[in-house]
Design a protein around this nucleic acid. Sequence first.
DNA 1: ATTCTGGGTTGTTATTACGAACCTAGCATG
DNA 2: CATGCTAGGTTCGTAATAACAACCCAGAAT
Lengths: 159, 159
Amino acid sequence: MSSVLGTDQFCSVARSLEVLGDKWSLLIVRQAFFGETRFSQFRDSLGMAKNVLADRLATLVSFGVLAPRAYREDGEREREEYILTAPGRELVYVLGALSGWGDRHRPSDHSPTRIYQDGETGERVELQFVTAAGRVVHGTDVVATEPLERAAAGSSAPR
Amino acid sequence: MSSVLGTDQFCSVARSLEVLGDKWSLLIVRQAFFGETRFSQFRDSLGMAKNVLADRLATLVSFGVLAPRAYREDGEREREEYILTAPGRELVYVLGALSGWGDRHRPSDHSPTRIYQDGETGERVELQFVTAAGRVVHGTDVVATEPLERAAAGSSAPR
DNA sequence: ATTCTGGGTTGTTATTACGAACCTAGCATG
DNA sequence: CATGCTAGGTTCGTAATAACAACCCAGAAT
């Protein structure tokens, strides 16, 4: 998790990837989102090395995605489990985007995996770009611009 | 980019991360989305090692995110550039999600980086979960379930 | 007192990333 | 036609990470 991603930390995508840009972190968050909290649950469901898991959990805690919480099972000593924080739960947008892309562009012969729904009504939900007025804009029509570049729109290489 | 991410390739998040789950791939896609196409543009904007860039470009091409295209500048020999495919452009949802999360939860002292807008009207757009009927559902109310688990909703450990 | 168990730590080896040096196909120049 | 220039790489040697295995440790149960 080095802190030099390219020349710019100015991009929020890069700042997010500083926390999440490796093979395991988002999978841990996914499992946490599915209800897992314990070291051995992550270990078993992901099949990853214990030292790497310990390292990623510590990193996710240090960045405020997970929070450690003590718990005690009957007849067991006190241990720590890892709970998604409010910022961590917001990563549902990232998981939904990755899930949608994988479903659409890397389909599996296996079942359609997980579907995302409104927890209240059970309606299926999909990620969409929407305007403040609530109008849906398709992804192919979305562009990203720098806030101050409105006038000089001719240069080809950003930054 | 090993093909064993945990025990399950059944999850579309894992399948997406098989292509995108490293430090650089999504940043390359981001730069491509901002209009960059050439080896040296990626190299200069991201500051990454050339062999790693060559490897990532080849991987992204092999997974159909980028497509090579010949071009020729005046007085230069023919070269290849890398263009986002339709599936690659769909990654705007992933970039938007990462960007939104980074803006909200890892704010920088620098400018608000990029904003996403409707290319037609210029209106700002945000990623939201919406139902088929067009109702926006906040991320904290979204749950992910397996399509067939509707009846047995008590088990704590998915799979 | 000994064993069991969840949750780790500490090695040792295999992968992967990095930086610098080198290569290469064509075009331009003398 | 020999030389050099340039974008876009490849090929090193080395540094950092990940993976795998062995071990540890604090209680609780026996």
